[in-house]
Simulated scan of single mutants.
Amino acid sequence: MGEVAARAGGFVPEVVWAAGVPSSAADTVAAARVLASRVDLLLFAGGDGTARDVLEAVGDSVPVLGIPTGVKMHSAVFAVNPRAAGEVAAGYSRLRDAEVVDRVDGSPRLFGYLRVPDVPARVQQRKIGSSGVSPEAVSGIAAELRSMVMPGELLVLGPGTTTRAIAAVWGLDVPALGVNVIDGEKVVAADVGADELLELVSGAAAHIVLTPIGGQGFLLGRGNQQLSPEVLRAVGLEWLHVVASEAKVVALGGRPLLVDTGDDSLDRAFPRYVRVVTGWRRTILYPLNERQS
């Protein structure tokens, strides 16, 4: 529940709830209830399931903010990265009601609302499910990618229904939730892990294809930890391609695309704008990782 990590960081924490081993959702609910009357802002680390536990515990009695831990999250109660959580906690002036959403039986379900700081550039939006990409757009994106890749070069496809649809255009079946590696007309590795992926791309010519999470804009750091900083450096950021339907880009409402690799120096190395491939010979120049001064 955080005591060990806090002590390891040199802090002397006050333990308000003695959790079981291992801790459970009931421990999260109990600890949040104890803290609700003692704090001005309740910070928690976890994903959508933890957000549900916090909602059950505190409702709208105290503002909250989630610290993201790397999983793909549907709820709109999380900062865009841990550093942003600290920046928001240090000072905010307004609150808003934010959705708590979790997947149940494979589909997102709204469980309620938590009050969170209203800092749009630092607190993520709710994930918007895919409405599908038109066959014409998918075919165009697939053709554009093929024109960028030379024979013998590897193509690393990030997770997503868009990237899976692109692979299908090439006659390949890959899982939508994994990272997959393609060489020409064959799948070299499906649902590959970080270590195997690093081995495949090290010393090889490779490209990485990513599609942003709908409504949130995350390219890296949410549900694709296989694309580690080591893998990204081995491939080179100049060989990273972003693909999306025009509708997905419009749904961002001008908010920037985001990366959260866990490596601050690598995050800063990304360009301020990236080209988003939306079809054959069709690209949009879009802001990436907009920072506040």
Rank of each mutant, 00 (worst) to 15 (best):
G2I: 03
E3Y: 09
A6C: 04
G9F: 11
W17Q: 12
S24Y: 08
T28E: 03
V29C: 02
D40Q: 02
L41D: 00
L43P: 00
T50E: 01
V54L: 06
L55D: 04
L55E: 04
L55N: 05
A57Q: 03
G59V: 01
V62D: 01
G70C: 02
V80T: 15
G91N: 01
R94G: 02
R109E: 07
L114P: 01
R122G: 03
R126L: 04
K127Q: 11
K127A: 15
V133C: 15
S139C: 11
S147D: 14
E153G: 09
L154F: 01
L155V: 15
V156M: 14
T161C: 08
A165T: 09
A165H: 10
I166F: 12
A168T: 05
V169F: 04
W170E: 13
G171D: 08
V188S: 08
D191C: 11
G193R: 12
G203Q: 02
H207T: 13
H207N: 13
V209H: 10
L210F: 09
L210A: 11
G215N: 13
L220K: 03
L240P: 07
V242E: 11
V242P: 13
V249I: 14
A251R: 11
R255N: 10
R255A: 14
D267Y: 08
D267R: 02
V276M: 05
T278Q: 13
R281F: 05
R282A: 10
R282K: 15
L285S: 07
P287E: 03
